[in-house]
Amino acid sequence: MPEGKRENWRWEESRWENPDIDWKKGKAITVGIDVGSVSSQAVILVDGELFAYSSMRTGSDSPNSALNAVNWAMEGTGMTLDDIQYTVGTGYGRVNVPFADRAITEISCHARGGIYMYGPTVRTILDMGGQDCKVIHCDEKGKVVSFLMNDKCAAGTGRGMEVFADLLGVPIGEVGQQSLDVDVEPEPVSSTCVVFAKSEATGLLRSGWSKEKVLAAYCSAMAIRVKSLLDRAGMEEDFAITGGIAKNLGVVTRLEKQLGVKAFKPKYDTQIAGALGAALFAQALLAKEEKEEITIATDCP
């Protein structure tokens, strides 16, 4: 790629493996695959413990994206698709995961994954995804109590942030921190449309605003946009954020300030919540199937 043509929207893909788990000794290997509009994740659980995960960009082909994600998560472990006992697909491309035993909505999976990641006291989960935003209320077991999703508009989503990273030439991983480097918080740009916000930002840059100030104005607009969804859905503590934007301190800090509530600090990659929830569903469904098989075998004369 020629110098100066760096793709600033390109976020870091990641893979993690738990070195303390020998999957060959595990009795139940379950997988959750979240094929989202922007990113795909695969999470592998061994007897309910997090063994490995991968998070990468979704390609133009959902089945391939699912396969690439799970292959990357398994890479170097010696595990193959044949070793996996139950797979649940979730996300926009959930019906296109060719090796999935069942498809479950991302709303249910985010609730279950969010409780695993942040603990059973969480009651409100805000998922700021690539092309949608969801407010989910759940109980201590991760069952959804209510949900509200907005996927009509890119404002308040990761894709909107990617547009701004590219416009300002700031790597997306640095947007949040740089947006906090302002002495005085500027007025937010348009929070209703990324296209209008982008043209507004271009004008502000021309009038002499620094990149940091423009980023602050956009992060603030995004926080306002998301808060309006939380106002409609209702906020019940404890509060946690999942999805890629949860890594953006510029948005998270401003949202916390507007809400007057602190979000839980993440222990895992916030993008894996959906796939993690799917893997937990897979584990529960596998256990249910095995129990039914035992009952049938016992009932046979």
Binding site: S146, F147, L148, K152, R232
Partner: peptide, 15 residues
Amino acid sequence: MLANYGYNDGSGDFF
């Protein structure tokens, strides 16, 4: 479960 279907855009909330 309270399921909210719809959207929020520049013209308002429709759920």
